[in-house]
Amino acid sequence: MIRSLLLAGLFSAGLSAAALAQSHPPHAQPGELEVDPYTVSDANAGADPIEDADVFVAFGGEAGIARVVDGLLERVREDERIEGIFRASDWPRLRRTLIEQFCYILGGPCTYTGRDMASVHRDHGITTREFNALVENLQDAMDAEGIPFALQNRLLARLAPMHRDVVTR
């Protein structure tokens, strides 16, 4: 009895400690939810930047990348294959970190402040088919921005290995 009370006490103390630790990171924008603390690093982006300035330019710089990410998220929201996975997502944060990540990988003047790919996707039980659905949406979004196919593939080549961290099922 005493032991279980003790355990319960410890447990709730642990919970409130975790709740206290949740906060808005300094780079968060208004409207974002709180997240558990993590170490900010460009390494979290999961890929090294492309060292070819032409690619960043072809994507239309940061503004162009933001349009691609908006196009991607718009499509994901309507894609019945995967929209369910994103229902509980923090969309403002997802948008911001995706723009940062793509900008960083495409060699733009950005730092990635989001979490690493393994820990952020771990609990979503994502399959290869769902991964590919997202890739198709991204391709459609890049097509809509008129980004040449060969340059689209430069970005996709950096994202493809993340399959290892994103797909867990």
Partner: peptide, 14 residues
Amino acid sequence: AKLRLFGDAVYDQD
């Protein structure tokens, strides 16, 4: 009959 042994043609782009 064909058996894939190792490697990944599509995802292992690194």
